[in-house]
Amino acid sequence: MIPATFEYHAPSNLKEAIRLLGEHNSGAKILAGGHSLLPMMKLRFAAPAHLIDLNRVPELKGIREQGGMIRIGAMTTENEIIASELLRTKCPLLPEAARQIADPQVRNCGTVGGDIAHGDPGNDHPAIALATEASFVLTGPKGERTVAADGFFLGTYSTQLQADEILTEIRVPAIGKGTGWAYCKLKRKTGDFATAAAAVQLQLDGNTCKKIVIALTNVAPTALKAKDAAALLTGKTIDDKLIEQAAQKVMSICDPAEDLRGDREYKTHMAAEMTRRAIRLALERAKGK
């Protein structure tokens, strides 16, 4: 459990971090909370020659509102997300999900940016970002660009983030009136990744579902947006029958990998079950129950 030798860099601002990343490029890895990277290094599955630690870059921290958009610094920890009053009222799905990530120790160090940039389909934030229709700010030597969460995740450990870029900010639209949300996650134990999880954010107009986004964790090489299932429910009064149809649609897009959490059949069924539960809970919340 001892990593291969590496050089450690601790830049104090973003510019320096990007310069270092450019210098060492493919030999470098960004260190955020370290809860994915360090275990991989200890097992020598990853052996970067350079580690660039972003923990001393102050501009990557913090949560603020600007023009109806909540901006979250990529180095914001899960516990900071849980503690944020702003997020609780404007993007409640985020703290709800963060509370279900790992355990308090991990949440003290683990960051939202690291969770997203790692591209692990087992991580929770990718599905949350899809469900909240978030976008990501990617900063590189040529400046910054903003990309939508939908389309950012390309495959396991593969995203649109280029080797010379750093994910610096997550932008999440504040919820509107009549919004309900839920993240339902099935896991074996505290600290585990999801066997399957479903994130739902919906908006009601009276009893009609004006808008709904459903996203799934750990049932495919990337987080999935269940577009057909959402389309089924949009513009309708959601009842048990429709929920069941949506759950069936969800099952048709799952492509999970078998592991000790379950085989493909179990994980697919659990994605559907978590979806049923998340839709019901989101509906209750939207109705103010």
Partner: peptide
Amino acid sequence: LLSNSLMDYFVPTAAE
């Protein structure tokens, strides 16, 4: 051996 770490080998915490 598939369950060679505490991720896959269950050791309950107070939560479970």
